[in-house]
Each structure stands twice: as structure tokens, then as C-alpha cells.
Simulated assay, not measured.
Amino acid sequence: MGFTLAEHIPTCLNGKTLAQSIEAKLAAHVQTLKSQLGRPPGLAVLRVGDDPASAVYVRAKEQACERVGIRSFGAHLPASTSEADLLAKITDLNHDERVDGILLQLPLPPHLDARPLLYAIHPDKDVDGLHPDNLGRLVRDEPGLRSCTPAGVMQLLAAYGIEVAGRQAVVVGRSILVGKPLALMLLNADATVAIAHSRTRNLAEVTRSAEILVTAIGRPRCITADMIRHGAIVIDVGINRIQRPDGKFSLWGDVDYDAACQVASYITPVPGGVGPMTVAMLLHNTVWSYCRRHNQPAQLLQLSPTDQPAR
């Protein structure tokens, strides 16, 4: 990855364009299967309360479903919804044969504990990949539903022909939603992986060791150019809504993008990088579940292992 600053222009990893390509592939697949199976895939996104960011995200998912031909069975429940009522709703969706995927939009109102609710979703409909059964399959590198954002990162790397095997990867962030599953996916792809977090000492020294640096900590522009190895591949998962003086909001990543462009070889923008890929992988997981439930070939994208033994 050698180059001089004078000639260096980093490659932008365009998640928006790739997501559109994946959507087109899924739409064609759904159109074919719908005529054979008599119904389209179904996705239920459950939103509880009135978090404004969640409203935007859910609407984007519903619009993406419309584009691909997935039927939406979502519900917007009041913030006062009890755990028992929400569990009852999830149970109904688990037994609804029209529904292939269930997603519980986070965050939830403070009185609700997400863990038992996520565990209540049937593993075969867990399109967010957060059920212990699916996380266990990821640990064992077995076929299963994969967490959407990490899966989107891996698809971006693959689409741009970026070799993962043998490279040093650092993931900054250890959440169960992104950091931990992504570290496992990179490890399963034969990278050498380190996870950094809020208690990591000498964070800049750790991040500078990375040939592939992924940030998912939710702190705007906290990764500066001096923390990035020259020629590194930088994947910015952070989406931070920052209010401007005019009252409107801008989206910032975890990485100081303009400065990072001076040293990175590849970089994702915010917005337009990982975000669209997260939605594309949600659609993929829904169609994957739909195929599996109807005994149809489900290898739509290379998200599952190829049955090679770990070494």
C-alpha cells in the first residue's frame, strides 16, 4: 500500500451504489420466487416510542422494502407499551407465516429491557442477527443470520476487492450490535483482529497498527489522522447527529474524514458509506430467511462460510 502524499487520492467505498446493486439483485430474486411461492417475503419492524432518529431509520427500511418487493408488517407502538404487551406482539409475529423477519428497533424506552425482547424473537426470523443462537453460529462460523452492519462492512470490503486474509484489523468499539460480531467476521475471514474500546490504553498506538481500521464508537470525529496508519483501509461505522447553528442536523462519522483522506488508501464517507449497506443487509437477511423457510437456495450473497476448517 505504498504511495506518496503528493499522488495520494483515497478510494471512496461507496455503500450507496453497492446497496442499490444489491437491492436490484434481491428485487429480481423476489419477483421470481413470489410467482412460485404465492407470496412475497415479509418483514416486521417494531418501533416503540417517538425517538426521532428511529422514526427516520424505520421509514428508510420501509421504503427499501417497497423497492425490493418485501411486504411490511411493522407496528409503531406507544412509549407506554409494557414488556408483556411487546412480548405478546413478538409472539404473534413469530407464528405469522407471512412474516419472515422481525426487527426490534433500538433504542427502546427506558422502562423496557431489550435483552429478553430480542431473545423472544425466533432465531429463524431474527434478521438483526442478535439472538444467541445466531451469534453462536457466527462464533462457530456456521450458516446463519448475520448482524446487518458488520455484514455490510464485509460486503463493502469484498465488493472493492480488498483482501482481508492475513491483514491486521483493529475494531474500535465492542458493542454486541457492531464491534464484537464484526471482529468475529474479520477473524473468520482470516484477518488478525484486535478490539479496542474506551478502556484501551494508548489508543492511537493501537489504531496505528491497523491495516484495516473500523470505528464504531459514536463519538464524532474522534479518530484523527495521526491515529491512522499510512495507507490504511478506514471503515467509519459511526453515525452522529450533530445540530447545526441553524437548528438542522448534520451526520458526522467517528473519523475526521477530510484529514483521514490524507493518509488512508480506502475510506467510507458518512453518510453514504456503511449506512446504506446496513439496510441492504437487512433486506438480504429477510429474503434469506424467506428462502430457507420455503426450502429454496438461500446463498444470495457470500455471508456464510464455505465449510472450510478453521486453522
Rank of each mutant, 00 (worst) to 15 (best):
A27T: 13
D100M: 07
A60R: 14
T215H: 05
I239S: 09
I235T: 00
S80V: 14
R59Q: 08
R241S: 11
V193M: 10
A310Y: 08
D113N: 15
G272T: 12
R39S: 10
L186C: 09
A44E: 02
K180S: 08
R241G: 01
R115C: 02
N202R: 09
P110Y: 09
A75I: 12
R208S: 11
V274Q: 04
V153Y: 05
S54G: 01
F249W: 13
G129S: 03
F249K: 02
D141E: 14
D256T: 12
R67L: 11
D141L: 03
P40V: 13
I242Q: 01
D256H: 14
N202M: 01
T192R: 00
H294T: 04
T224S: 14
R167D: 01
I223W: 05
P269Q: 04
R244H: 06
N134K: 04
A204N: 11
S209K: 13
P309Y: 11
S175E: 07
R293D: 12
P10V: 07
G144W: 02
M277R: 04
S265K: 02
V237K: 04
D236Y: 09
L106Y: 06
G275T: 10
I9G: 00
L301C: 06
Q308F: 12
L108A: 03
A259D: 13
A53V: 14
S175G: 13
E97V: 13
R39L: 07
L37N: 08
A55D: 01
D126G: 02
A210L: 01
S304M: 09
A88Y: 00
I242G: 01
T17G: 12
E205M: 03
R241H: 11
D133R: 05
H197E: 08
K180D: 04
L5M: 14
D307V: 14
T224D: 12
I162H: 07
D254N: 12
A260I: 08
G144N: 08
S265I: 03
V193T: 12
E142Y: 09
I239P: 04
R221E: 15
L203H: 06
R293V: 02
Q262D: 14
T200Y: 07
L301S: 05
E23T: 08
N94V: 05
P220Q: 07
G69R: 05
T4H: 08
G69D: 09
T286E: 05
Q308G: 07
G49R: 11
V263A: 11
T306V: 05
C148T: 13
S35G: 11
C261R: 15
I70D: 06
Q308I: 12
E163M: 07
Q36I: 11
A232M: 02
D133S: 05
T224G: 13
R146V: 14
Y266H: 15
Q296T: 03
L186P: 00
G231I: 05
S175R: 05
D133G: 00
L77K: 02
V255W: 00
K34T: 15
V178D: 01
E62S: 11
D124R: 14
A55S: 09
A55V: 02
V170C: 03
M154Y: 04
A204Q: 14
G166K: 00
L138C: 08
